[in-house]
Amino acid sequence: MTDQATVDRIENSVSRSQWWDVWDQFKSHKGAMAGLFFLVSITLFVVIGPWLWQVDPTKLDIRSKDIRPIYTALWNGDAKVSWSHPLGTDNLGRDIMANLMQGGRISLAVGWTAMILAVFLGTTVGVLAGYFRRLDGILMRFTDLMLALPLLPLLLVMMLLFRDSLRAALGPEQGIFVLVVVGIGITSWMQTARIVRGDILAIKEREFVLAARSIGTPSGKMITRHLLPNVLSPIMVSATLGLATAIITESALSFLGLGFPPDFATWGKILNDSVPRMVNFPERVILPGMMISLTVLSVNYIGDGLRDALDPRLRGR
């Protein structure tokens, strides 16, 4: 049994890169696979969806307002349903399915971009602080300072200072997009930076780093070739968490009216607008809420699976 497995691995190692091993390990994590499936489905829904379902999400049709989702007819024959609005319409007659697609595009775009920005910043600061002792004090105190800053007042100030100029330069939607993404990105890199610094500090005392240094590897090469690959797994995990946080922060900003213009759907805003009519139209809260929860949950599971798959000590168990 064990011998057979060892033989398999030896045979495979000839023809396969390590990423195939990662993928094999990842596949064995059921939660991660389910998460990947949901994330891909949701992404396809919001990216491909608007081409297939060509309804303008902002079009108001007051005559067909308050239509229930088509499945309501299963238990309530009197419900106002229509095949032209399979998920129903809101109180002004906007199609909910089109809004979920449009809102998802924005929410996911904000989530991914802000996360990439935050991870990039966090990793850079973490690596520099961990590797160069002289930078450590100043960078880590700066990290503490950023952690102590309250996010919402900071965003409020950013909105006041930069909104008009960005709006003039990029238009109302792109301007706010850049502002929200930058706002979330520069206020959520600190956790990543701390984790990465801790790992770098531990790794750079290891023998293989000493060996690399003894043959004269310069600092840049040392970081990219020996250190970064070894801290990849905590970075991946914090990236997945960051995506979830970014989507939720964007919802909070929309709720406060600091985010996108009010007719510009995002999942958080659809959810927030529907709360007063939650009793009569529960689907208007449940659908966007489910989208946010599923995305966040999937990404977390993927992160979990990736961590297991990327750690060579766990791989193969």
């Binding site: 009216g257 213009p261 009010p262």
Partner: peptide, 20 residues
């Protein structure tokens, strides 16, 4: 949202903003 739609029907473009 309603007024923005009506303004667009008479050829006026309206950008919306809501403030706390």
């Amino acid at each position: 949202a309603l007024i923005k739609q009506w303004m667009s029907e008479i050829g006026i473009e309206v950008e919306l903003r809501n403030i706390d």
